[in-house]
Simulated assay, not measured.
Amino acid sequence: MATSYADSAQAREWDRKMDACGRPKATPAQGPFHDYEAAASERSQAQVNNAVRELAERKALAMRINAAVDQMAVFWNLKGKPE
């Protein structure tokens, strides 16, 4: 426990020295606050995009399955050949 305290104290001291030396800490580009509304909007938009993509994939899968079933029916003479 003493080691973790010493490490954090040393880190704080090092940060203080670096700031005093004229090398300020880099500030985040977005600022210190998190925009929860924008994050929620991005998540909801991502969910909508995923739902649209899944619907398109299911439609494409259904078309491929129907084509395969039709080919099997033609092969086994259960359905006439397509014209």
Rank of each mutant, 00 (worst) to 15 (best):
E42A: 05
R43D: 10
P28C: 05
S41A: 11
S8G: 03
Y5F: 11
Q45M: 06
R58G: 04
P24E: 13
Q10L: 07
A68F: 06
A60R: 06
W76Y: 14
G31P: 07
P28F: 07
A68H: 09
R12Y: 09
P32C: 09
E42I: 07
Q45F: 03
E42Y: 01
P28A: 15
D19I: 11
A62Y: 09
E13G: 01
A73Y: 05
D15P: 02
Y5P: 00
D15H: 11
T3E: 06
A38L: 03
A26W: 06
P24M: 07
Q30P: 02
F75I: 07
A6K: 10
M1W: 12
S41I: 03
Y5L: 11
G80L: 10
T3C: 00
N77Q: 10
A51D: 08
K25P: 09
K81W: 04
Q45S: 13
I65A: 07
A68R: 12
D7G: 02
A39W: 03
Q45N: 14
D7R: 11
D7A: 06
A29I: 11
V69W: 05
A20Y: 02
A39Y: 04
A9Q: 10
F75Y: 14
V69K: 13
D70G: 09
R53L: 08
L55I: 01
N50V: 01
S8E: 15
C21M: 13
Y36P: 01
A9S: 08
F75N: 10
M63E: 11
Q47D: 08
N50Q: 11
A60M: 03
F33W: 05
H34N: 02
D7N: 14
W76T: 15
D7W: 09
S4A: 04
A39K: 05
R53F: 05
Y5S: 10
K59F: 15
W14T: 13
G80R: 10
G80K: 14
P28K: 11
T27Y: 10
M1S: 12
Q30R: 12
V52H: 00
T27Q: 15
Y5Q: 12
P32N: 15
V69D: 07
G31T: 00
S41W: 03
A38C: 00
M18D: 04
A2G: 07
G31H: 02
A46K: 11
E57L: 10
A6F: 13
A2D: 01
Q47C: 06
A40Y: 05
S8Y: 07
N66P: 00
A56Y: 02
R23Y: 10
V52T: 04
K79I: 03
D35E: 02
N50M: 04
A60D: 09
M18S: 03
P24G: 10
Q45G: 13
K59P: 03
M18A: 11
E54W: 07
Q47E: 07
A40R: 13
